[in-house]
């Protein structure tokens, strides 16, 4: 006699087509990270997937008070590799920033953003997560690591002339709204 009718068509899958680049474990991990960030948000930090690909996020950091960056908002992109969390995410500043450890293209020099392990200077570990990475970057704004600068001038200026430094920071900074206008 006939079949028990097939059931596959009934399955609802929300956006399954969109998660092309990542495997199930990565998605699960990212979803739980997102859930954690949403349910217990850290002030001044937020992150959210940018589009249909859950491995590409946008993040927002506000500059810590009592630093030259106070009151400024910075946009970043976070891109997770397919073997996340065994490899660190790739984080870049989208907002132009004047900082000793960030170069003109927005690349960040931070130990936890480099793969750890034997013989490597990186400090990434699977126990870290997006929230902690963003928190580290936020604190990096107030405490630059001038020993290994990407922007040498900024490193020098940080030690010599905080007022001039602050001027440079503000001059270089663009609020996200201005960037949108530029882009348009």
């Amino acid at each position: 006699m006939s079949s028990t009718p097939s059931t596959t068509q009934g399955t609802k899958s929300a956006g399954s087509s969109a998660r092309s680049a990542a495997n199930g474990n990565v998605i699960k991990r990212l979803q739980s990270e997102l859930m954690a960030m949403m349910t217990s948000p850290t002030p001044g930090l937020s992150a959210f997937p940018s589009g249909s690909d859950i491995t590409k996020w946008n993040a927002t950091i506000t500059g810590p008070t009592d630093t030259p960056y106070a009151g400024l908002t910075f946009k970043l992109t976070v891109s997770f590799p397919s073997n996340y969390p065994y490899a660190p995410p790739d984080v870049m500043f989208k907002t132009p920033i004047y900082h000793p450890n960030v170069d003109m293209a927005g690349r960040i020099c931070l130990d936890i953003l480099k793969k750890g392990g034997d013989g490597s200077e990186g400090a990434w570990s699977a126990v870290l997560n997006t929230g902690s990475v963003l928190l580290s970057i936020q604190s990096l704004l107030g405490e630059p690591n001038n020993a290994s600068p990407l922007n040498g001038e900024a490193a020098l200026l940080w030690d010599r002339d905080q007022a001039e430094y602050k001027k440079k920071v503000v001059a270089r900074h663009q609020e996200p709204a201005e960037m949108d206008v530029d882009a348009a």
Binding site: M1, S2, S3, T4, P5, G10
Partner: peptide, 21 residues
């Protein structure tokens, strides 16, 4: 086409949907 032992209506009704849902 799949031959199956279950022949009654209940099987067809239950087969309409994803079992979990």
């Amino acid at each position: 086409y799949k031959a199956s032992k279950s022949e009654d209506v209940v099987a067809y009704i239950l087969g309409l949907f994803d079992p979990e849902e």
